[in-house]
Design a protein around this nucleic acid. Structure first.
Length: 381
RNA sequence: GGAUGGGUGGCUGAGUGGUUAAAGGCAGCAGACUGUAAAUCUGCCGACGGUGGUCUACGGAGGUUCGAAUCCUCCCCCAUCCA
């Protein structure tokens, strides 16, 4: 475990840090002012989703400026969409959902890149390493990610290996194209930093091989991606194994992970940054993040739709200082949810954002003062 | 007073002799959600019993039938129109 700083043209990120997902350019339900007020450090957007709008974003000064966020940003490459557009969400893929059973053909992978058939209009959309880097360059994020394929869980070892090797080739092309574009930049265009992504699925030898590849390439940072397994135990084991082989002198990001217990597990293994849709998605479904001690049952979130909150006059978090908890009760939010009032989502999302930021601050403090285990107990026991 | 249409589970609304404890939808009660195809999805949702099951159900009362939410008779109620 370690604390650190990542310096970007838009500011310094204190790590371990959580990165919020503004996939299409907005944090769902939260304004950028509130993101700042609730002490967020960095947000992320996605090259796949923003590809059609890339010229607009560029002409409006890039993602950070256009959105009003102004602070540090990261863009994802679109590699996750190779997985999600064909298989659905991580849990849907693992559990075997019906809806996405016949959508694999919506994504075609060749050595050149990936062609997506958009489910909305049937238009074809092509992403390659070079294309993804160019889009991310135009979006202007401080941190960007090499183009890879996020491998599903339900594929065999052969496919995982094949895919990993292709991802390596794609990442190498990403790096080459990135370096070329960086060299062409003048004083007015801000430098960016590129992350490589470790693949290899749940197979230790493949993870090892992938780490070796990433370790030896000139990436600014290293991200852990791909399938981390079907269970929490397996995920922890895959991440631990990967961390064992990954060099430690660069920032390390864990892609897509961000439940409370996973943050502690990751931090203990030396992860510097996390990103996850969980806090904001959970909020849209009525779920508020909570310290275990703040709930009457063993849980890391409460569903404010539940009948038991109907007359609850207390805030979501007993000691939370977010704008929501300063003013609104669980009972009121329960009422808003039952009446489909949009404000419910806004209030919960804002709380969840602050919750994650408070969590990360507590984690950093815990590392600094060598009391992480006590911090963990406060948040999880 | 007359004419017509209708009364189905909390609401809405299918169903016109058996495979119907009764489609859908809503509401209700839970659960899931991890580089966002998601303000989404899944399950339960007459009553009693842990399932199996048992009982009570389609305005009310009779009747036809092996069998009725569905057909017949009378009654009650609602909507619209005419006096």
């Amino acid at each position: 475990m370690r604390i650190g700083k990542i310096t970007t043209p838009h500011g310094i990120i204190h790590t371990p840090a959580f990165i919020f997902c503004a996939t299409k350019g907005a944090i769902k339900g939260v304004t950028m002012e509130d993101m700042r007020i609730e002490q967020s450090q960095i947000i992320l957007a996605n090259a796949y989703h923003l590809m059609p709008a890339v010229e607009t974003i560029h002409s409006l000064g890039g993602f950070a400026r256009m959105s009003g966020w102004q602070g540090p940003t990261l863009t994802d490459s679109g590699g996750y969409q190779i997985f999600s557009m064909g298989y659905g969400s991580v849990s849907e893929e693992i559990k075997g959902n019906r809806h996405f059973q016949n959508t694999k053909h919506n994504v075609k992978i060749t050595e050149a890149g990936a062609t997506f058939k958009q489910y909305t209009n049937g238009n074809l959309l092509f992403l390659s390493p070079e294309k993804s880097i160019e889009i991310q360059e135009k979006i202007g994020a401080d941190l960007i990610v090499a183009f890879d394929e996020c491998t599903p869980y339900h594929v065999d070892r052969n496919y995982t290996e094949e895919s990993m090797r292709r991802s390596h080739r794609w990442e190498k092309r990403s790096l080459m194209h990135f370096n070329k574009l960086e060299l062409q930049k003048n004083d007015e265009t801000l430098p960016q930093a590129l992350y490589g992504v470790v693949q290899g699925g749940v197979y230790e030898d493949l993870r090892h091989e992938s780490c070796n590849f990433i370790n030896n390439e000139d990436f600014f940072g290293q991200a852990i991606g791909g399938s981390l397994g079907a269970t929490k135990v397996q995920m922890q084991s895959v991440v631990a194994t990967t961390m064992q082989y990954l060099r430690k002198d660069k920032p390390i990001h864990l892609l897509g992970i961000g439940r409370i217990e996973d943050i502690f597990n990751g931090v203990e293994l030396g992860i510097d940054t996390f990103d996850c849709v969980h806090p904001t998605r959970l909020a849209r479904h009525g779920g508020a993040l909570i310290k275990h001690g703040d709930a009457d049952i063993d849980t890391s979130h409460i569903n404010l739709r539940n009948h038991r909150f109907i007359a609850d006059d207390t805030p979501i978090g007993k000691s939370c200082l977010c704008q929501t908890c300063r003013t609104y009760s669980r009972g009121y939010i329960n009422h808003l949810l039952k009446n489909q009032e949009l404000l419910a989502i806004v209030l919960i999302a804002r709380h969840n954002v602050r919750f994650m930021n408070d969590l990360m601050a507590a984690v950093r403090q815990g590392i600094t003062s060598n009391t992480l285990q006590q911090v963990k107990k406060m948040w999880l026991s």
